[in-house]
Design a protein around this nucleic acid. Structure first.
Lengths: 228, 228
DNA sequence: AATAAAATCAATCGATCGTTTGACTTTTCG
DNA sequence: CGAAAAGTCAAACGATCGATTGATTTTATT
């Protein structure tokens, strides 16, 4: 289930390819595409500078290969976490109450991703870089990852509130709800300082999950009822 | 009220300083600190490369001067938009119902900032860059701008829900609510594509404001009441 | 073992980076 | 007016960038 970001290959050349991809993930995440040099990437991979041109053709093509690997990997994670629910959603056999818990499930998966360590730290950084300063490679992430997720979330929200998933208002609301979860990643320096901690831990994860669940519940189950 | 980001100076030297700051705002926003070169900044300002060292000492110090100017300017904007409410909040004479509309007011100000064109586009980009890939200059923005705003918002939320503004759960909830508004800036490429539009317009602003108002209302007025 | 293919490497290319220098022009002020 | 101060500018510095070359070593195949 928990597949590696890039599987361990047998041949020697593919092993060097993988080492370069992992080093590129680390360096691009830490400093962004422009500021990460192919020399430090090659050094971190234990390879020569020329190996990048040899295996990928150019720095840009190495980056593209990395983005495609990330997209495929994250799709797998979501399929493993909420696969059968999303399948029923795509099949059209999902009722309102199920949609609400589906929204909460997707939110929990997203929040959980933000608390995974290791390579996920770097994957998040890369995605943030591409969101906030999109390169011409952004469509790779959008089409391969962001759009499928966003559309599904919007459809769940539409079912939960009895609305039309094509309406701009519904899409905007879905985006705002998403923003709640993502804010703990993209503005992590700020929330960490505000809490006065060194880093977020499992107790924070629990609090965030609980409050997001509560928000989803209120927004889906109490709307169009005059607030008392 | 609507003060310029950097006031127009009289002397010749200060005018060159301002031209450099405005050009730096544009270039740092567009490409980030590392990728923006002092040559293109000087060119855009109609100045020589050496003028940056002459007026600011170095590229880094130019950036610091820019961040300080941004922080001061945004504080003015918020003071002009919600000054008396925030003053009453700081004075401690704010009741629950007022706190709810205060939250909505702050949210509307933040959302509105995201729809202002001109230099605000660039200010947002700079702040996003510093949030997602903090440089050693990040504390300038945090202490001078983010923390005062975040603390006030948290205190409003605590009053509105009858909670303790020091509790981590309250700080985390305030952050999540903030995230709803900011998501339209930091993930703008995604929401624009999802809507299938070229850019967000006033009708989107209206929809976003309405739905955020609704969320604030639900979260502050319907909580701890068993959902129907 | 011999040959071809794949992989690795040091060295180098032209371009651009931030910074510095020193001469030059403009402004300021007694 | 004339000297000092402030501002401007082209040129050059060493460093680093992405990319390329051509030789060398390692692996795979017959």
């Amino acid at each position: 289930m928990a597949a590696k970001l890039f599987p361990l290959p047998a041949n020697k050349g593919d092993r060097a390819r993988r080492k370069l991809l992992m080093a590129a993930l680390e360096k691009f995440a830490a400093k962004g595409y422009d500021s990460a040099s192919i020399r430090e990437i090659a050094d971190a991979a234990g390879q020569n500078v020329a190996s990048i041109a040899y295996y990928f053709g150019s720095k840009k093509k190495l980056y593209i290969a990395l983005l495609e690997g990330i997209g495929g990997h994250l799709r797998e994670v979501f399929a493993a976490s909420a696969g059968e629910m999303l399948a029923r959603l795509d099949g059209g056999t999902l009722e309102s109450a199920e949609a609400v818990s589906g929204l909460q499930q997707m939110m929990r998966t997203m929040i959980g991703l933000q608390f995974r360590g290791g390579d996920f730290d770097k994957v998040r950084q890369i995605m943030i870089h591409e969101q906030t300063a999109p390169s011409d490679c952004y469509p790779i992430l959008y089409e391969g990852m962001l759009r499928p997720l966003h559309e599904r979330f919007t459809r769940l929200l539409a079912i939960a509130r009895g609305e039309d998933p094509e309406q701009p208002e519904v899409i905007l609301r879905a985006h705002a709800l998403f923003g709640q979860a993502i804010s703990f990643t993209w503005a992590r320096p700020t929330i960490v300082r505000r809490l006065g901690v060194r880093q977020l831990d499992d107790s924070h994860l629990g609090s965030i999950t609980a409050l997001i669940d509560e928000h989803i519940d209120l927004i889906c189950n109490s709307h169009s009822v005059s607030p008392r």
